[in-house]
Structures are given as C-alpha cells and as structure tokens.
Design a protein around this nucleic acid. Sequence first.
RNA 1: GUGGGAGUAGCUCAAUUGGCAGAGCAUCGGAUUGUGAUUCCGAGGGUCGCGGGUUCAACCCCCGUCUCUCACC
Length: 358
Amino acid sequence: MSVFRVEARAGEARAGVLETAHGPVETPVFMPVGTQATVKALSSDDLRRLGPQIILGNTYHLALRPGAERIAALGGLHKFMGWTSAILTDSGGFQVFSLRDRCKIDEDGVTFRSHIDGSAQRLTPERAMQIQALLGSDVAMAFDHCPPSDAPRADIEDAMARTTAWARRSIATTPAPGQLRFGIVQGGTHLDLRRRHLGEIGALGFDGLALGGLGVGEAPEIMYDVIAAVAPELPADRPRYLMGVGTPKDIWTAIGAGVDMFDCVMPTRNARNGHLFVRAGRLRIANAQYRDDPRPVEEGCPCECCANYSRAYLAHLFHAEELLFYRLASAHNLQHYLDLARRARACIRAGAFPTAPW
RNA sequence: GUGGGAGUAGCUCAAUUGGCAGAGCAUCGGAUUGUGAUUCCGAGGGUCGCGGGUUCAACCCCCGUCUCUCACC
C-alpha cells in the first residue's frame, strides 16, 4: 500500500496525494519553512488559516536549541509548536552548505562549531535520523552533503559518494512510528552525475526522493535544464521534492517538469524585508509610491493582510518597524505561494498545465 | 547686559600640526532559493551660519556680524 498516489497528469506535471501520519498532503505542494519550530512571524493558528497541509522544521537548529531530547520529552515537535498537520524535517545537510565555514566534514559525519555558543556539535547520519525520530516529524530527510554549485566536478562526485553512503546508514535507522524517509539526489549541474546518483539513491527504498544542491548559486536557466532532464526520471510512483526552490517562476516551471513538493525561505524572508509577492511580480513596500496607496497589496487576495489593510498602511508599518508588519507580510507571501500550488493542482486536475506566464 | 560653549548632509556628530569635507541614522534603489536574515549591498545629498582678512592653500588662524545655548548680573 503506497503512501503516495498520483491522481491526475498534464504532460509531465502530476497532481496527487501523500498520506502522512498527520493527514494527507495534496501535491504539488509548497511547504512553508519553520526552521526553529516556528514559521517566522506567524503563530500556528495564523498558519492554519493560510491552510498549508505540511510545514518544515530543521534538525540542526532544533538539536542545538532547544534540543531534540527536550522536545521529545515535551511530546514531540507537533505538540511543542501546536501544529496538528504534517511536518517535514530537513536533516541538517543544508547546514553543511550554509554553515560550511563553521563545519568540518569527514566520512563518518560533520562536526559543527555551534553558531550559538561555539561548542562542537556532531551530526552523523545516525544522529540526524535519531533527532528527527525524536522530533516525530512525518517526513525525515536523509543526512546529505550539499556542495556549492560552483564546486569542482571532483568535489561534487565526492559529495555524491558521501551522500550515498550516508543515505544507506540513514535508511538503516529506526524511524518514529509512521515516519516516512526521503533520500536526496546530488550531482550539481552535471546531468550524467545526476543520473548516476539518482540510480544509487533511487535503489535504497526511500518513500520519496529529493533533488538537493539546486538553487545554490547557479543561473536559473541551468537549474531549469537540470530539473527538466532529471525530474521526469525520478521514480513515478514516489513523491518528488525539489529542495529549497524557489521563486514562483522556479516552482511553476519545476511542477511542469513533474516535481511534487517544494519549500523555500523566500516568501517569509522576503516578507520581513518588505518584498511582497503579487501576481504581476513583486512589490517593494518601502518604495515611496506606496505611502499614499489605498489599494490592498493584491486585489482579491483572501489573506488577512489584503482583506483588511491598504498598501499605505503596510508601508507605514514597515517604516515604523512595527511588529505587525512581519506577520501581515509573511501571511500574504505565504498565501501567494500556497495559491500558486493550489492553482497548479487545479490546472493539472483539469488536464492542462500551462507554461509559466512569467 | 557680562562671560563661556556651539553653529559642517534632512537629523546627531567627526575631520591629524592649515593640504581634495566623512560617519551613523534618515531618504532612494538593489539583493535574498532544504533561514546563522528585523539581514546584506549600493546611490543621491553639503555656498562647512554670514561677510571680510592672512596664506600657494582655510571647516581649521585673525576681525566683524547673526543665531542657538549655559552661567552670572
């Protein structure tokens, strides 16, 4: 009995449902990033109103603070943060990339110098999976090595070999009850390496497969080429997850290539910096033109922000650095991303997935 | 009225012994892709209160003047 079923197709694009221990997830799906047991600026209740069926948490950050054992003792991550729908946890593999100046990689694992107190923190595949089991996430990611996109080919191959070895060790651990595990395909922008690594990771029995190491500095066109070539080759009966990507255009394009799941900090991070996503592109609320603009951020948008407030009000909150700004802006941007995924699902189920209108 | 202090970017202030006038904030613009992000980068903006003088050269020294401020009368 598969946990994932594809229910409709339009070209390479698929619409389906992933069954998790905390409910079904309709794909294609965008998963808001909640690294530290919170989607920044939003309460779990705010999130519920926006309607995502799954959000992210992070192994490295939660293990450092408040600690995986502490969260487990308090009843697990769902209970800890008051979130009753699904959670996917990243393994800490991305921190091997984003914190590469603070860590040392060996064949057994990675030693981080904590960015909080400088203490040494050891992450191995076994420990990363144990932490995720303690957190009780619905989907746990294998511990991988994500290299920079401009790394020499030989370094990419090293990262692939390490990621495969770590994937074997990750899948050999005991998951939390009902917890799914996803493997991660590396290979940089080299199509032959991607295919080779997909062969290795795809054979290990993961519940889903992810493309890692994209959106980490390479040009969008190059990323699109990799996705267009590799996504359709990922096993058709399992969910396909493009990690960390991306802009609305990136996501729409990847859905067209057959990707089912996405996460990205962009809607929430950009919100906090005054960048609001609208269908026509984006709006920088700090720009002077919005100080007297009585219109909502986006006409017809059902989010709390657009339903109740003007651009002028948002501009005022931003300039005054009022805390409400971060909440309203984050809610709006997530609404935009979640709507994008909803539209994609509707298009695919209607049998026609249009190319990106951008 | 007398004595002291201060006048430099929109604001608060720097500028060695006289040597091309700077910073922070603000303004304007740009970045942001499995969050070390309430972050980072860039740009515009000055008759150095005003008028004289000394000097090759003055924000800086000298004279006059105006304004603010503190103390005293």
